[in-house]
């Protein structure tokens, strides 16, 4: 089992080492995921119902109130 895991690790490590154009792509992926999950999700895109209410019952009540008052 450990040997299999080592082989998998080596497979990926060798793959990453031998990349050429891939390095730039991984950098872009990294920056993109950082911007999406750390900046946008955290500061600009909260899940409003999860943020503002503690229980599903409260969330349902909020949606019911909103949808019957619009």
């Amino acid at each position: 089992m450990i040997r299999v895991l080592k082989n998998i690790y080596r497979f990926y490590a060798d793959g990453f080492r031998s990349m050429t154009i891939g390095r730039k792509l991984w950098l872009i992926i990294g920056i993109k995921l950082f911007v999406f999950f750390v900046i946008l999700k955290l500061f600009f895109f909260p899940d409003i119902l999860s943020r503002d209410f503690d229980t599903d019952e409260e969330r349902a009540q909020h949606v019911r109130t909103t949808l019957t008052n619009r």
């Binding site: 999406f36 969330r59 949808l67």
Partner: peptide, 26 residues
């Protein structure tokens, strides 16, 4: 190249569901 640049761009739509369209989302 296309896969790497495009991957996760769809997640933004899910962010919008939770923030802009929370009534819909629920």
């Amino acid at each position: 190249i296309n896969f790497a640049i495009g991957v996760a761009t769809g997640l933004i739509l899910e962010f919008e569901f939770g923030t802009n369209w929370s009534n819909y989302s629920w």
